[in-house]
Every structure is written in structure tokens, then in C-alpha cells.
Design a protein around this nucleic acid. Structure first.
Length: 464
RNA sequence: GGCCCUAUCGUCUAGUGGUUAGGACGUCGGCCUCUCACGCCGAAAACAGGGGUUCGACUCCCCUUGGGGCUACCA
């Protein structure tokens, strides 16, 4: 069975790049009827933090990236010891007592001589093992070149000379990334490793480990990285870093996932993918090879698409955290209608919530620019006329409202915009808002007339 | 420095020897219109450079250049 995993280290928040790796792994597993495992790689005690683990889980859940199983490397020490002992027994690993100072000096000298820094194998065949000195464990690197096939990069080749007897266990007794990573992938039966191509050289080292364990490595797909707008590696200074910040900014998880999957992967000209389609179409063949620049504008566009096309009540559930206090007094049906009028007018949930606030709360100020332009004394009479017509209109019937406006336009020989804008400002406080009739119908007769009366008061009287 | 990856419009990408080099975001025009959006129509915009291979290269090979990564008792 296909088994993939996402293996973040909790040394920071879940960011866009990590999420995308998770998304690729998740959909590849689901596309192949397989399992997706979450593995928290918290072997670095210094830098790992529980709050980050929590944030990672929360971010994945928010995006509905659900794992079939989860494990923590910090709890798997016994397993690593077992694998290590086997290596010892077979003479494939050894204890190294070299001090950091010696290593430092060695490196310096090698660099000076124009050589690549390599561990010199000083402790590789030590006759006597000192009892009380601290040590690290190194592997005996097999002297064979390393070849592997990558789904996106094709045939890869590394000379063993590029590597040395690297450390797998620290002097504090904890194990290192390349070792735990391989042991866990073997133990969990991971079939496909999908990760960033910054791991390409790690993969070579890891394959050396697979050889020492006499195991076959999994299949690999090294996906291109995500770059910031300045084409450097995505980092804190490129704006929002944690995926939860996108949540707070009013981005829909569906939109984010859709955006991320298209960064480095494509399916012809198709841009919009729902979950079913991703499960159906996602594959490793269409992965791209080169790094991609993160483009916030396109994310926003996708978000707007999702907002536009989402059923209002579903949207409403996402919206709850963003809505104004005043909206809590209104029932779902009312809010649904309000949301509908705003769907095509918002790029984010923040904008949507802000834009529909007026449905729940009378405007407390009238936008300056619009007022100046539209609340002119010349519309005072027409507005009073309109108000009178609206008083006898049927607010559940658009035609009836339309008639009131048309009569006013005819009576004073003015254009719709002349009266629509003052009404709009009265209703919402702004000169940009949904259509006049839909707003009037939703707000209802009583509320609408109150607001219109109020705005008429603000219109200066004609100087007679 | 060494090793590795990579290179199509500003950005995301389609393209796998013969195309007017296609789509999307963004930009700029226009239409629609009670405002703002939405929608619709249209425009500008790319094969990094140089060598090969070939009847023919965006497509294959090499070099240069640019970008990225790794080179830790981080992951």
C-alpha cells in the first residue's frame, strides 16, 4: 500500500512551504488509496517546542489534511537504539571520541589545502575504547557511489567521496536527523518520500544508511522550493509566515490548498481543483522541476473565486470569527441573504465581514467623499418624494421598489444614479455597496425607511 | 571553494523536433451598469546567451551566465 508522510520539525510555525509538502504527500496518498502519516521530528531538544507542534497540527487540521497516524520521534528512542546496535554488531558504525576542537582544526587545515572538509576516520579503527570519554557515533560510509531515481529529477548520481563518516548519534545520546528519518521510514513502511529538493543531498546520505541496513530505499520525489518575490528562499521577511496567519487574514483553506498545489504542479490549463479533483488528478508525473515564486495576488484571486462559489451557509460558518458583534443578533437566514450580496465583492473573509456589517448595524458616519458628491441639495426634493413612494411600496417585491424609483426619476427627470447613491449612502454609509433593491429587500421596510430619513436630514436644504 | 538542482510573458504554468508558443494571476483598454464588484470582450507581455546535433530546434547535447540548495554533534 502507498504510504507517505509529512515530517516537520517543530522548530518553527508551519509555513507555506511545509504545508505544500504536506499537501503533496496527502493527496498523493489519497490518490493512490494509501495512507498519510504525520511524524513530528523533535529530536533536536534545543530547538523543538511544544507550541510549534500544536501550531503545526492546528494548521494541518484547518486545511483538512488529516493524518492516518501520527508519531513523535522523541518517543522512539528504543527503536533507534535497536537499529544502532545492529549497526555496531555488524561493524558498520563506530564510536568517535574526537573533540570538537580537533575537528575544527582538521576542517581548517583541509580548507587551507583546498580540500573539502571531511572527517579523517581517526576513530574508525580504534584499538582501545576509552571508558569515560564522551563520544558520538559515526557510520562507516560504504565506498560505493550512490545512484537513485527521482520522480522529478530523474537519475541522480553522487560520488561517495562527497561524503564522510557522518554522525548519527550525538554525544548527548540523541540521534540525528538522517538516521531517525531513515529508521522511521523503514519502520513505518513509507513507500514514497515527497519532500523539498533542498534534501537532495540528504537523500544520498540516507541511501547510504539504507545500504547499511540492507533495506531498499523508498521512491523519491524532490519537489522544487517556494521562493519569495525577490526570488530568495521564502522566509520571515516575506510577509505572513505561519499558515495560521492566512487563516486570520480571511483566506479560505480550500483556496490556500488549491494555490499551493498549483505551485510546482499542474494539470494542463486547469486552475481550480476541489478536493475530489485533487484526489483524482494529483500525480508525481506533473510535478515541476524549478523553484516557484509565491504570488499573493493569485492566492487572493483564488480566495475570491472560492468565496464567490461557496454556498452561503458554508461560507457563514467560516465567517463566524470575522463578523461584527452586531451580527450575532441576527438569525442565520438573514445573514445568509446578506452574505450572498457580498460574495462577488470580497477577496477575503475580512473584507466580506466588513462589507456586510451595515446589514446588522446602522451606519454611524457617512463616507466623506461620497457624501460630498451625492448628498447635494438638488436631491433633497427627489429624496423626499422617493421616501413617500417607498412608504407605500412592497419591500418583498423588487418590482414594487423599482416602481418607486422610476416614478421619482420621471417626476424630476433625473438619472438613477442621482437618487440611488444618496439612498446607498444612507443605507450603508458608503458609496460602494451591493445593489439598491437587494439591500432594501433584505433590510426591510422599517429599517430602510429609518436610514433613508436619516440621510435626508443630512442633505442641505435648497436655498430658495 | 566543492558537490547537486534549475532556467518559457513581471508571476504561476502548458508545451516533450515542425504551434500564429496556449492558459491563469496581475497590468492596460472596452462593454455591462444605480455605486462597487462580478461577468464578458480585447491588448501589451516570454522561449537567458553562445555553440553544436538535425532538413528543421523552446524542445536533444555541451559551454557560459543567472537563480536555488547542500557542504552542522539543525531538520
Amino acid at each position: 500500500m502507498t504510504k507517505t508522510r509529512f515530517a516537520p520539525s517543530p522548530t518553527g510555525h508551519l509555513h507555506i512551504g511545509g504545508l505544500r509538502t504536506a499537501v503533496f504527500n496527502y493527496f498523493f496518498a489519497k490518490a493512490n488509496n494509501g495512507q498519510f502519516i504525520l511524524r513530528i521530528e523533535d529530536t533536536d531538544k534545543e530547538r523543538s517546542k511544544d507550541e510549534y507542534t500544536k501550531a503545526i497540527l492546528e494548521g494541518l487540521k484547518w486545511c483538512s489534511i488529516e493524518w492516518d497516524d501520527i508519531c513523535y520521534q522523541s518517543k522512539r528512542n528504543d527503536i533507534y537504539e535497536k537499529y544502532l546496535n545492529k549497526l555496531f554488531e555488524e561493524g558498520k558504525a563506530y564510536k568517535c571520541y574526537c573533540s570538537k576542537e580537533r575537528l575544527e582544526k582538521l576542517k581548517e587545515e583541509q580548507m587551507k589545502n583546498g580540500e573539502n572538509p571531511h572527517y579523517d576516520g581517526h576513530c574508525r579503527n580504534l584499538k582501545e575504547q576509552p571508558e569515560d570519554k564522551p563520544y558520538v557515533v559515526r557510520i562507516k560510509l560504504p565506498e560505493e557511489d550512490i545512484d537513485f531515481k527521482d520522480y522529478v529529477h530523474g537519475d541522480m548520481h553522487f560520488s561517495y567521496k562527497e561524503f564522510d563518516d557522518f554522525i548519527i548519534k550525538r554525544s548527548d545520546g540523541s540521534f540525528m536527523y538522517n538516521f531517525t528519518n531513515v529508521v522511521d521510514d523503514i519502520e513505518c513502511g513509507i513507500t514514497h518520500v515527497i519532500r523539498g529538493d533542498d534534501h537532495l543531498t540528504n537523500t544520498a546520505k540516507q541511501i547510504a544508511l539504507y545500504r547499511l541496513f540492507d533495506k531498499n530505499p523508498p521512491e523519491y520525489a524532490h519537489v522544487p522550493m517556494i521562493l519569495g518575490e525577490d526570488k530568495t528562499r521564502l522566509s520571515k521577511r516575506h510577509g505572513a509566515k505561519s499558515v495560521l496567519e492566512y487563516k486570520d487574514a480571511g483566506i479560505l483553506p480550500e483556496a490556500l490548498v488549491n494555490y499551493l498545489i498549483r505551485l510546482g504542479w499542474s494539470y494542463g490549463d486547469k486552475e481550480l481543483f476541489n478536493r475530489e479533483e485533487l484526489i483524482k488528478y494529483f500525480n508525481l508525473e506533473n510535478l515541476n522541476k524549478s523553484a516557484a515564486v509565491f504570488n499573493p495576488d493569485k492566492l487572493l484571486w483564488l480566495n475570491a473565486e472560492y468565496i464567490k462559489n461557496m454556498p452561503p451557509d458554508e461560507l457563514l460558518s467560516y465567517l463566524s470569527g470575522f463578523l461584527d458583534e452586531s451580527c450575532k443578533e441576527y438569525d442565520k437566514e438573514y445573514l445568509k441573504k446578506a452574505v450572498e450580496t457580498m460574495q462577488a465583492r470580497a477577496n477575503t473573509l475580512v473584507e466580506l465581514a466588513e462589507g456586510m456589517k451595515f446589514y446588522c448595524k446602522k451606519p454611524d458616519v457617512y463616507e466623506g467623499k461620497g457624501s460630498k458628491k451625492y448628498l447635494k441639495q438638488s436631491v433633497k426634493e427627489p429624496m423626499l418624494f422617493l421616501l413617500e413612494k417607498l412608504e407605500s411600496a412592497d419591500f418583498s417585491n423588487e418590482e414594487s421598489l423599482k416602481e418607486a424609483f422610476e416614478l421619482t426619476m420621471k417626476e424630476f427627470d433625473i438619472k438613477m444614479v442621482k437618487i440611488a447613491q444618496p439612498v446607498r449612502i444612507g443605507l450603508t454609509g458608503r458609496s460602494a455597496a451591493p445593489g439598491i433593491y437587494e439591500m432594501l429587500m433584505i433590510l426591510g421596510k422599517k429599517e430602510s425607511l429609518e436610514r433613508i430619513e436619516k440621510v435626508i436630514d443630512v442633505i442641505p436644504n435648497p436655498s430658495s
